[in-house]
């Protein structure tokens, strides 16, 4: 055992003089940074308490404990929070069904995920029907809001992105140029300005009496922005389809739309799922920008909680916690996308 360990250390840490030196430098750096970090995060940390008087030199996780529900549910009425949980469960079930590779009804799951699921989740969250109490969207917040924004935006942006990608490859100049213009404009401006336009200025461009909910406006802004990025992902997939496939589809006598729906897009999608997942990860991270324009997503709630007199000045704990939540979600999604990529590469791709 020790022999194997020694040979592993030799091969991986001290294989050459340079490597040995690097190992020592690295160890020194880690010895400098890790102990204080661990002491702050765990050893000196306080895990429970009623207000900031319990906090000491280390992290004050008691703050997170006290605010945990708000970070997840925002100001959603506590008696109604089971609706969020139920919606999340439904979503998780269908998402698992859609992602599990050996599910015989996978296609159906995907279709339900973008049709029935938003409907169920919407009814559950908004309420106002079936005896459910109406919960106005300005009470939504926390991580729930990030997830809602991500999910709704993906559901709108993905189909729009497919259309834009087809448009960009179209033979008709007007279609092509409009698609290119749309894609490049949205890709050329920062998301923050798009969100500002959508949430603050959009009512100026709509007739009186037509008011859209703040959250809906944010989703619209995000969707247009993300659709441009989705379009580029889809376009890359379409470019990976060989010319023969197109010719075969045409040879079968299929029209443009049927050929794309039955032959081209299904193949392209197999190639671009990792790209789509990556775009969704970026979108999920970017939903935090809504905190700047005054929606209380998890980042906004954390910022606001640090103003609470009982927990004043505990921003660091709040932000570390939010980062941890995002890391868990995004990292697991990116592992999934990587495994898909490997599978595509193994199966020969294109």
């Amino acid at each position: 055992m020790t022999e194997r360990l020694r040979s592993w250390i030799h091969a991986n840490l001290f294989s050459s003089r340079l490597n040995g030196f690097l190992t020592l430098v690295m160890l020194a750096l880690l010895a400098l940074t890790l102990p204080p970090l661990l002491r702050w995060a765990f050893l000196d940390a306080v895990y429970a308490g009623a207000d900031r008087s319990v906090c000491g030199a280390g992290a004050c996780w008691a703050f997170i404990d006290a605010r945990f529900d708000q970070f997840f549910y925002g100001r959603y009425a506590p008696s109604e929070r089971w609706r969020i949980n139920l919606a999340a469960l439904v979503l998780a079930l269908f998402a698992a069904g859609a992602m599990w590779p050996r599910n015989p009804r996978r296609t159906e799951c995907v279709i339900l995920l973008v049709t029935l699921c938003p409907l169920i989740a919407g009814v559950l969250l908004v309420g106002g029907v079936f005896g459910l109490k109406l919960v106005p969207t300005d009470q939504w917040g926390g991580l729930t809001l990030n997830v809602v924004l991500t999910y709704a935006t993906t559901a709108i942006a993905l189909p729009l992105g497919v259309l834009l990608a087809l448009g960009r490859r179209s033979r008709l100049p007007v279609v092509r140029w409009l698609s290119i213009g749309f894609i490049e404009i949205w890709r050329g401006v920062p998301l923050l300005t798009v969100l500002f336009m959508a949430t603050v200025m959009l009512p100026m461009f709509l007739p009186d009496g037509l008011t859209l909910d703040r959250l809906v406006r944010a989703i619209l802004g995000l969707s247009l922005f993300v659709a441009a990025y989705m379009a580029e992902v889809v376009r890359a997939g379409l470019q990976g389809i060989s010319k023969g496939q197109y010719e075969a589809a045409a040879g079968l006598g299929l029209g443009y739309w049927r050929a794309h729906r039955l032959i081209i897009l299904p193949q392209a999608f197999r190639l671009i799922v990792p790209g789509i997942v990556n775009t969704v990860i970026d979108l999920f991270k970017d939903t935090t920008l809504v905190s700047i324009i005054g929606l209380f997503d998890i980042l906004g709630i954390v910022g606001q909680s640090t103003k609470d007199p009982a927990w004043l000045g505990l921003g660091r704990e709040g932000y570390v916690f939010a980062a941890f939540v995002f890391f868990v979600c995004c990292f697991s999604l990116s592992l999934y996308s990587q495994s898909l990529e490997r599978k595509i590469a193994r199966s020969g791709g294109h």
Partner: peptide, 16 residues
């Protein structure tokens, strides 16, 4: 509608 100082007049102008 809770507004920051920065957006308040724009939001009023926009008619929200």
């Amino acid at each position: 509608v809770g507004l920051t100082a920065k957006v308040r007049f724009t939001v009023l102008q926009a008619g929200e």
